[in-house]
Design a protein around this nucleic acid. Structure first.
Lengths: 154, 154, 154, 154
DNA sequence: GTGGTCTAGACCACC
DNA sequence: GTGGTCTAGACCACG
C-alpha cells in the first residue's frame, strides 16, 4: 500500500490520509485484521505531524473502519454486514451523507446540461473500473505485516 | 425561488448559497437570462455578510453559471452545451472534479461492503427523483423580474 | 455560568468542560441561541490550552448540543425534539450509550448487595434534586451576552 | 461463567474484565467463596497480557469484591452488607462514585430534552431485567471448582 | 475575531 | 512500544 500526501492540496492532510486508507480497504489491499503502521512511524514516513495522522485514524475508527487500542496499534475492523450490535446508527449517518453528496453532484450535472443517461453512463464506467478488477496480487493467507509504503509529494 | 441558509450546517454559507442557485438552475426555476437579486439585497434578506454572497456569486461566475457586469447585476448564463467558445477548460475541470467526487463516493461505498448494483440502484433512484418531474409551473416566456425569495433558518 | 477545572482530576479536562456545559444546558443556565465564549478566551480564562477547549466544543457539536461556525462562535443548538432531519442516528447512539452505562451501574449496585428498590430510591432522589427546582434567576427575554465566568482549581 | 473480551471496544481490557466479574457476582454466577482462575491461566485463555488481568483483579480486590492471597489465588469475598469492619470508607467511596455517575447521566438525559419520568421508566425497565430473573441454574451448596470459561472476540 | 488545521514536543495510560 | 491527552505557537478559511 502506497500513501501519498500532497501538501499543496486544499483538502486537509488528515482527509487525504483517510480517503486513501478507505481506498485501500475498498481495493482489498487492506483486509480485516491487517495492522496499520503506528501513528508515529507513519507520521515520520509521510513527513507530517503525529497529530495529523492521529486525527485521520480517529475518524476512521469513528466510522467503523479501524479498531484502535492504546497498547496495540490500529487494525482494520471486521466488516459489519448486518445490524444488531449498536453501530447501525453510524451506518445510517454515512448512508445519509452519501445520498446527500450524490444528490448534489447530480444536480450540478443537470445544471450543466447533462442528462440522466449521461450521468448513469459515467457511474457505470466508474463502477466498472472500481468493481471490475479485484486485486489479485494479494496472498489470501497472510494476515499481518502488510507493507505500507509512503511517498511525499510537493 | 426560495433560498434557505442553515446556520447550523457545517458547510460554509457561501457554498450553501452556491449549491442552491445551481439546484434552481437544474430544476428550471432559473433559466438563462433570469436576473438574480443584487449582492446587497440578498445579503440583507439572508442576514449574512455581503462578502459571503459576493463569494458565492463569484464562484458561480467562474464556473460559467452566471454572467456578472458591474452595475447590471448577475444574470443566469446561456447553457454552453458543447465546446467551442473558449470555456471548454472550465467544463473539463468541472467534469474532472465530478468524476473525482464520484470515484471517492463509490470507493467509500465499496469499503463499507456495498455492491456495484446497490450503488447503481441508489443512483437510479436519485436520478428519477431529480430528472423525473420537471417544474411545470414556470412561464417559459418570462425573462426578468423573477421571484427570488429568501428565508433564514435557525 | 461558572466553569471550574480540576487539573489533578483523572477525568480529562476536555471532558470536564463538556460535562459542565451539558449541566448548564440541563439547568437552563444556557438556552438555545446563547453564545458561548470563544475557544481562545475560554482557554485563557481557564488557564488551559486552546486545543483542549476546542476538543470539548467539537464533541458537544458532534452530539448536537452546539452549533459552530468559523466566523461566528459557538451557539447552543435548538433542541431536536423529534426526528426527521438526519440527526436521529446521533440520538440513537447517545440513548444506547446511556442505557449501557445505566446497566453497568445497576449491576455494580447489585453486586454490592443493593436492592432494586434502594437503587430506585437513589434515582428518585437525584431526579428530584435535578428536575425539582428549575433555575428561576433567568431573564427569559435575553438571548445573548450570557455571563460565563470561570475558576481555576488546583 | 464466560468472560468475553471485545478488542474493538474502546473501554480498556482490564476494565472489561473487571465489569464482567462484577456482573457475574451480581447475577449469582459467582458467590462468596468461589475461586477465580489464576492470573496466568486467564491471561492465556483470553489472549491478553498478564499485567492486564492482574490489574483487573487488583481493582476488584481494592473494591472489596475479591480476597487475594499469594499462592492461593483470588476468591470472591463475603458480601459486606452493612458497615462495621473497617471497609466502610470503601463503600462510601463507591456509593459516592455511583451517585456522581448517576447525576451526570441524568443531567445529560435532561439536556437532551428527556423528562424525569422517562428516565425513571428506563431505570425501572433495566432493574426489572437485572433483578427480575435470578440465575436458577446454580447449585447453591457448591463452593469451589467453579466453571469459569473464556472466549476471545474479534 | 472566529473556529479549523498543522507543527513540535511533552507526559501518561495501556499493553 | 502503542495511542490519548495536553501545551505552545503558527497560519488559514470564514464571516
Amino acid at each position: 500500500m502506497i500513501i501519498e500526501i500532497d501538501q499543496s492540496d486544499d483538502v486537509p492532510i488528515y482527509e487525504q490520509l483517510r480517503r486513501q486508507v478507505i481506498e485501500a480497504i475498498a481495493n482489498g489491499e487492506l483486509v480485516p485484521g491487517d495492522k496499520l503502521p503506528s501513528v508515529r512511524s507513519l507520521a515520520v514516513d509521510l513527513g507530517v505531524n503525529l497529530h495529523t495522522v492521529n486525527k485521520a485514524y480517529a475518524l476512521l475508527r469513528d466510522d467503523g473502519y479501524l479498531n484502535m487500542r492504546r497498547g496495540s496499534g490500529a487494525v482494520v475492523a471486521e466488516r459489519r454486514d448486518e445490524a444488531g450490535h449498536g453501530s447501525a446508527a453510524v451506518d445510517g449517518a454515512q448512508w445519509s451523507a452519501m445520498n446527500n453528496e450524490l444528490r448534489r453532484i447530480i444536480l450540478e450535472h443537470k445544471a450543466r446540461g447533462g442528462t440522466a443517461e449521461s450521468f448513469l453512463d459515467t457511474v457505470r464506467h466508474q463502477c466498472a473500473s472500481i468493481y471490475g478488477l479485484q486485486n489479485p496480487s494479494r496472498d489470501e493467507g497472510r494476515r499481518s505485516g502488510n507493507d505500507v509504503s509512503s511517498r511525499r509529494s510537493s
